[in-house]
Computed example of a mutant assay.
Amino acid sequence: MFIAFEGGEGAGKSTQIELLKNYLTERGHDVELTREPGGTPVAEAMRDYVLNPANTIDALEECFIIATGRASHVAHRIRPALAAGKTVITDRFVYSSYVYQGIAGGLGLEKAKRINEPAIDGCEPDLIILLDIEASTGVARARQAKDGGDRLDQASMAFHEQVNAGYRTIVDDRWAVIDANRDVAAVFDDIVHVMTDRGLCA
């Protein structure tokens, strides 16, 4: 199966992904962890460029750069892992572009979707987990953890509030929205309950 984690900065995606990997591995899954931007050498190079605070990038440029990396990620990492019978968990997927560049960045949701459509080429997760956190709480966490934060962490609070609001507008029945303002154990319990209810794990 293919699971994507989404959410604003500092939502705790990395922590929850590691917990879920351990949980699924104990139950016999062969788990492949990956991330966006990134996941392949070319996409990781693009990640470094996009997140570097020294670079000034508009939403259109950012969307195309990340979509190019995403095409590499899907073709050379995600699809081969799924074909090999692995469970793939990614820290962010295409929905981050819909929100960060399309909605909060002002590019437009439909334009962000059109740019990314050939990059994902029909590859969609079985479950998208949105870790929903207050923007001020998440950004404070991210900036502290990353010694000031990367280029996106350093964006205005208004931008981060638009990110959070944007995620809520694109949620559909494939998504599970989980309150990430709570402690780690409570959040993970909800993730396990969602996956069990949807028949994705025992």
Rank of each mutant, 00 (worst) to 15 (best):
G108C: 01
A45R: 12
G106Y: 00
V99E: 00
I57M: 06
A59I: 08
G39D: 01
D58I: 07
I66S: 05
G102K: 00
A59Q: 04
G39W: 01
M46V: 15
I78G: 04
A45K: 12
P118H: 07
L51F: 02
Y98S: 02
E62A: 08
N116W: 08
A84T: 11
P80D: 05
L107G: 08
G38I: 01
F64L: 15
V94S: 12
A45F: 03
C63A: 15
Y95H: 14
P118C: 14
T68S: 15
A45H: 08
L51R: 05
D58E: 03
T87V: 15
Y98C: 07
N55G: 04
A112F: 00
H76F: 14
C63I: 05
P53K: 09
E117M: 12
V50I: 13
I89A: 07
E110Q: 06
Y95D: 14
Y95P: 00
I78L: 04
K111M: 13
I57L: 15
G39F: 08
A67F: 04
M46F: 14
G85M: 07
E62T: 08
I57A: 06
Y95Q: 12
L82G: 08
A54D: 10
I66V: 15
L109D: 02
A84M: 09
A112Y: 04
A81N: 07
R70S: 00
K113C: 02
C63S: 15
V94H: 00
A112H: 08
Y98L: 02
P53Q: 09
H73D: 10
P80F: 02
V42Q: 10
P41A: 11
E44C: 10
A43Q: 09
L107S: 03
D58Q: 02
G106L: 03
Y98V: 00
Y95N: 13
K111R: 11
R47V: 05
R77K: 14
A71T: 14
A59K: 03
P41Y: 04
T87E: 02
A84G: 11
A119L: 03
T90E: 00
I65Q: 10
N52Y: 04
N52P: 04
I103A: 10
R79M: 10
V94N: 06
L82Y: 06
I65W: 10
G38Q: 03
R114W: 10
I78W: 10
I66P: 13
T56E: 13
Y98R: 09
F93R: 07
G69T: 05
S97G: 02
I78A: 06
Y49A: 11
I57R: 09
V74S: 04
T56W: 07
K111G: 07
Y98W: 14
H76C: 14
E44Q: 12
Y98M: 04
G108E: 03
H76V: 13
V99L: 09
A43L: 07
V88C: 10
N116H: 14
A45T: 13
F93N: 05
M46L: 15
R70C: 01
L82T: 05
D48L: 12
D91G: 10
G38R: 01
T90N: 06
D48S: 10
A104Q: 05
S96V: 07
Q101V: 00
Q101W: 01
I103S: 02
P80H: 03
D48I: 11
V42C: 12
A81I: 11
S97T: 04
V88E: 06
L60S: 11
A112W: 00
H73K: 12
R47L: 02
V88T: 10
R79V: 15
